[in-house]
Amino acid sequence: MAAAGAALLRSVATKMARAPPRLPSALERHGRLPASSRFSTSTGSTPQPANLRGPQTDLKKVRSGSEWDRVKTAAIEATTTCAFLTVVGGVIVICGWVNPALDRITANLEASNRLDMEIMDEIKRGHQRIREQCGSSKS
Rank of each mutant, 00 (worst) to 15 (best):
M1W: 14
A2P: 00
A4V: 07
A7F: 08
A7C: 08
A7G: 06
S11E: 15
K15W: 12
M16Q: 11
M16R: 12
A17K: 10
A19I: 00
L27G: 04
L27W: 14
H30V: 14
R32Y: 15
P34A: 13
S36C: 11
S36T: 12
S36Q: 14
S40N: 15
S40E: 12
S42C: 04
T43G: 05
S45W: 12
P47I: 07
P49W: 06
N51Y: 08
P55K: 04
Q56C: 06
T57E: 12
D58M: 03
D58Q: 06
K60F: 15
K61Q: 10
V62M: 04
R63H: 08
R63P: 00
S64M: 01
G65L: 08
S66D: 09
S66G: 04
W68N: 01
D69R: 03
R70K: 11
K72C: 09
A74D: 13
A74G: 02
T79A: 14
T80L: 15
T81K: 12
C82V: 03
F84I: 00
V88N: 02
V88Q: 13
G89T: 02
G89E: 02
G90S: 02
I92M: 12
I92W: 14
I92S: 11
I92V: 15
I94V: 15
C95D: 10
N99K: 12
P100D: 08
A101C: 07
L102D: 05
D103I: 01
D103Y: 13
I105V: 11
L109W: 06
L109R: 09
S112D: 08
N113V: 02
R114E: 13
E118V: 01
D121S: 10
D121F: 05
E122F: 04
K124Y: 03
K124D: 05
R125M: 03
H127A: 07
R129D: 01
R131C: 02
E132W: 08
C134V: 05
S136T: 03
S136K: 07
S137E: 10
K138G: 01
S139R: 11
S139K: 11
